[in-house]
Amino acid sequence: MFQNRAEALALALPAAIFAAAVFLVPVVILLSDGFRAPTGGWTISAYTDFFSNSLNQTVFLRTLRLSALVTVASAVIGYAAAFAIVSLEPGAKGKVTGLVVLPLMISPVARTYAWIVILGRTGIVNQAFQALGITEAPLRILFSETAIFIGLLQLFLPLMIISLISALENMPKDAIPAARVLGANWFQVFWKVVLPLTKEGLVIGGTLVFTGSLTAYITPAILGGSKVLMLETLLYQQVAVSNNFVAASVIAFILIVMSFAANILLKRVATARNKQRSQA
């Protein structure tokens, strides 16, 4: 650690000032509209109004539920995939990592349309289900929460896998064998050794996935439509159709608070594990 404050500030301030000037200040001014009373002064009535409406409650809970589900699913699948990838030999590892990153390169709009093909009544999934005798008539998967869940998971899973790969690679190589020698089962190894040592990756990946799911627009709009509104689709309606910038800033602020809360929660979960470990 270097101690020179002036140097530190000189290095960090340009970026901070830039982000504050071109981003934070305008956004804060816009968000403050949501707290302004029509008669002057400040109020949170726009927020109490928002949450007293039963449609908004439904949409809020749905958004929270779907984003949380996508985050949990991507963490579970992400750990499995990241484990598998780091255990490969270096050459194969690079190629498989490349395949994982690949979907990030293709426009989210195009990917969303591909799901219409896959999940449709005559799509691959339904054909496979019918061939396997899981269902007789084609299932309706499109335009439902399930479709949004699948679309979002595919959109953001790569971010989780990449965060976890680098976290797993930085883990001491002998941590797992050591725990096994000491008699821990695989579940304990994961819970008490791997999770605490990879919490940084989980927090970064989890925040990216959760925030991404909260603020995705195209995927819920196309795979869900207005049957399955999410906060972001509601926000878009307010801006683009109703020109109601106050209502829009209320929704935006709720989304921001949600993603901050998720970040803090993830950090908590990860640190709580850590404490347990140090006590044990």
Binding site: I116, V117, G123, L142, F143, A221, I222, G225, S226
Partner: peptide, 19 residues
């Protein structure tokens, strides 16, 4: 009702897939 569409561009795709 299958969906309440936002973009009419979806419809050709949905019609083609017999959705």
């Amino acid at each position: 009702i299958v969906t309440f569409y936002e973009k009419s561009s979806q419809l050709v795709q949905l019609m083609q897939q017999e959705e």
